[in-house]
Design a binder for these strands. Structure first.
Lengths: 253, 253
DNA sequence: TCGGAAGCGTGAGCGGTGCTCTCGAATGAG
DNA sequence: CTCATTCGAGAGCACCGCTCACGCTTCCGA
């Protein structure tokens, strides 16, 4: 687990308390949301003076950063599990996209406040440290995999993005996309010109945005009194936006 | 303007102070965001004791509600202006959708914190009063207009939503959609069976969610280091999701 | 082995928040 | 002109993030 197991009693106690602190924070966020998270309340939960908390965490924002990274990893794990499961079933790219999207939605519904933490309104004076972006990228990579896979198979249909993607994507992002491991094997996406990669990145961003929008709309209540069956409506939305970027999704039923 | 102009000096002063209070709140929200809004700070801005503010506004949440309604109306106005302008140019439904989407994005970029207020993470213990939903509906209606228009013209292409929309939309929402004024004339959407209306509502929700997702992703920094030209990327996203629901968008260039 | 250094928890304290209440002054209706 | 209503001020309560000096405990190195 940990890179180095603490040996001295003091270090052991420190690690244990820190773990308790994080657990308490997770619990409070799950119960009340990140905005309500108070270090004083956490201190009370742990039966300790409020100032003692600052021995273990630099500030409230630092604690939130830790939990943000955890949340990114959790949702990325969920998406990658869905990806692996779909691959094991030899699912089509369309089915895989549906599975990944559903996984993200399920996680969001189940961990509503964690979802808000990472994809909701940014905390007021808070700027995401560099640490977080690597974890955030994992999610995007998982979402993009079905698209890249379909492209590799030559199954990708036309899209309004065709021929309009040059210069749209930052070079750094293209570099990053190239370095991603493909779904069907090692580095499927490496093949292709910069323009092809850019076109895929643009398409994947559209998918990413639409997916987050659909989840956010449902979670934040913009669909209450409209959608009678949110889960099915979500599937249709997934299929529709996929169709818009040339990815065919076969909806059963 | 006001339904009844205040005659007595006291009522006049009261209305004036209340207006000043709202103006100050708007300014602070634009500058620092809704989460930072503090009634004490507002009181300081106006040179008054903090308790005095409570003579004019029930609570912080009540003040936020007022500003939320205002924000909905602002963005709805912007969208409807874009709609009217497009109609005056005899724009195609696709061009109109692009114009409305751009209008919403522009407003969001320009009034970032107001956008967060209405479409971002809901305020912790805050539940939107009934008053707000009517105003929120205006925005959705504007966004749906190009779609309904295309349907009325018989220009709507196929979509994964086809034949899967029955039972997905709450009856109340169908009723509401039926009562909306159409774009090209009075109540275009009234024609059609419940199933046809439901299919349009499902499509419009997909558009709505994708649009909000695209704006949120850009505003909240999920595309930094990815999109080199956010405005153009946004257009392509709009066109892509529109294609997914059968609405053809002609992108120039 | 033992002394000093480092780590730790406590409690007071600063400035901030939302909100309530009382009190005296200003106001306006009858 | 009188008196009820309205208003602003200020104190106060409970909460927040965060800092700091203090004394106790633990550990490391000589």
């Amino acid at each position: 687990m940990s890179p180095d197991a603490p040996t001295t009693p003091r270090a052991r106690a420190r690690a244990a308390f820190r773990a308790d602190l994080l657990a308490a924070a997770r619990a409070r966020i799950a119960a009340e949301g990140a905005a309500q998270l108070s270090l004083r309340a956490l201190a009370r939960d742990l039966g300790v003076a409020s100032s003692a908390v600052y021995r273990y965490v630099e500030s409230r924002d630092a604690l939130l950063t830790l939990l943000i990274v955890e949340a990114y990893d959790e949702v990325a794990d969920a998406c990658e599990r869905a990806l692996a499961h779909a691959a094991a079933r030899s699912a089509t790219p369309g089915q895989t996209w549906l599975a990944v999207g559903r996984a993200l939605r399920s996680w969001a519904v189940e961990h509503r406040h964690s979802y808000e933490l990472i994809y909701g309104t940014p905390v007021p004076g808070y700027a995401a440290p560099r640490d977080t972006i690597a974890h955030a990228t994992r999610v995007w990579a998982a979402l993009a995999t079905p698209l890249v896979d379909a492209h590799a198979r030559g199954e990708l249909g036309p899209s309004p993005a065709d021929g309009r993607s040059d210069g749209l994507v930052a070079p750094l992002a293209i570099e990053l996309a190239r370095s991603l491991p493909g779904a069907g094997g090692p580095a499927t996406a490496q093949a292709g010109s910069s323009e092809q990669v850019a076109a895929l990145v643009v398409r994947s961003c559209t998918l990413f945005e639409a997916l987050l929008g659909a989840v956010a709309a449902e979670l934040f209540g913009h669909l209450t009194n409209v959608a009678a069956d949110p889960a099915r409506a979500f599937d249709i939305t997934l299929a529709s936006v996929a169709a818009g970027v040339g990815l065919r999704v076969e909806l059963e039923g």
